[in-house]
């Protein structure tokens, strides 16, 4: 800051300038303080976040609708173009799936008989809420989406968000009519998973890329590209068996390719598996409560 105290005639000008600069620095310090406050993950910060998000949710909902319609139209045009080819592919796939359906029916019947024999206690039935995606955090640092369903629709913290064929994320903040879902690709996302065929456990760690890493595998794990990965249920956040994706090998180790088109998330199913309701401290670090 320049010192202009020598000027007696124009004293008011430097003083005003000084006050302005001081105010500016104070505001800058406030922003820095907010960063620390946010990092500490306090209840009050979360409360404010949720209330504010809830307030703008209807606006975002309204704004996202015309975009959805426009996208549908574009998609429609594209579909008409590739209709014949798609029809053939679908017919082939249908034939294959019919075969699988027969297998599944057979297994289902067999399963029922075996369960009956062993007196198996079935898992509680899952209830689910379908919600429109109304906001996505653009940018290189955060992978989360806002959905237009909240506490009043039965959404609870810790619920699994499923898109189409696989796990998309986890509900981290719940307002009255909106909720934030942390995607499995986010840097802060850690999901206990298991490789379906070899039963090797690992942690699915997001790193803001479209394909999360497979961490903490055993050194001698028998995992190869193409293997299916599902949630392991360890930690009690998700039930075991939700599909997550398939293993792909890259230069930077093993990664998982989720069956989800991240650019076109339109609806998410928020599933409550009845695993004891909301978990404590699911917002992030600094959880004193520990895992149940």
């Amino acid at each position: 800051m320049k010192d202009r105290s020598g000027s007696v005639l124009r004293l008011a000008q430097p003083v005003r300038l000084w006050v302005q600069r001081f105010t500016f620095l104070l505001l800058l310090a406030t922003a820095a303080g907010l960063m620390l406050l946010g990092k500490a993950d306090t209840v009050i910060v979360e409360r404010i976040r949720v209330e504010m998000t809830d307030a703008v949710a209807p606006v975002l909902d309204a704004l996202s609708r015309p975009i959805g319609v426009a996208n549908d139209l574009i998609e429609h045009g594209r579909n008409v173009y590739g209709l014949a080819l798609e029809n053939r592919t679908l017919r082939e796939e249908n034939a294959r799936l019919m075969q699988w359906q027969a297998v599944a029916r057979q297994l289902e019947a067999e399963n029922a008989v075996l369960r009956n024999l062993t007196g198996f206690v079935p898992e509680t039935a899952a209830t689910e809420v379908s919600a429109r995606v109304i906001g996505a955090s653009g940018g290189a640092y955060v992978r989360s989406v806002l959905v237009a369903a909240g506490a009043r629709h039965g959404v609870r913290k810790g619920q699994a968000a499923v898109a189409g064929a696989g796990l998309a994320g986890r509900v981290t903040e719940v307002g009255d009519r909106s909720a934030r879902v942390l995607l499995i690709t986010d840097l802060n996302s850690r999901i206990p998973v298991v490789v379906e065929s070899s039963r090797d456990q690992a942690i699915l760690a997001g790193d803001n890329s479209d394909r999360p890493r497979l961490d903490y595998l055993r050194a001698n794990a028998r995992v190869s590209p193409g293997d299916r990965v599902v949630t392991s249920g360890i930690g009690g956040i998700f039930p075991p068996g939700i599909p997550v994706g398939v293993v792909v090998g890259t230069d930077g180790g093993l990664r998982v390719q989720p069956p989800i088109d991240w650019d076109r998330l339109e609806f998410l199913r928020l599933v409550d598996f009845g695993l004891g309701g909301p978990l404590r401290g699911q917002g992030g670090a600094g959880d004193p409560g520990g895992r149940p």
């Binding site: 800058l28 907010l34 504010m52 806002l146």
Partner: peptide, 21 residues
């Protein structure tokens, strides 16, 4: 900036700090 941080789901204060700077 704070509004941007909250609605965007990013860490609180970062957008505010950068916009102020």
């Amino acid at each position: 900036g704070v509004f941007q941080d909250i609605v965007g789901g990013g860490p609180l204060g970062v957008g505010a700090f950068v916009l102020l700077a």
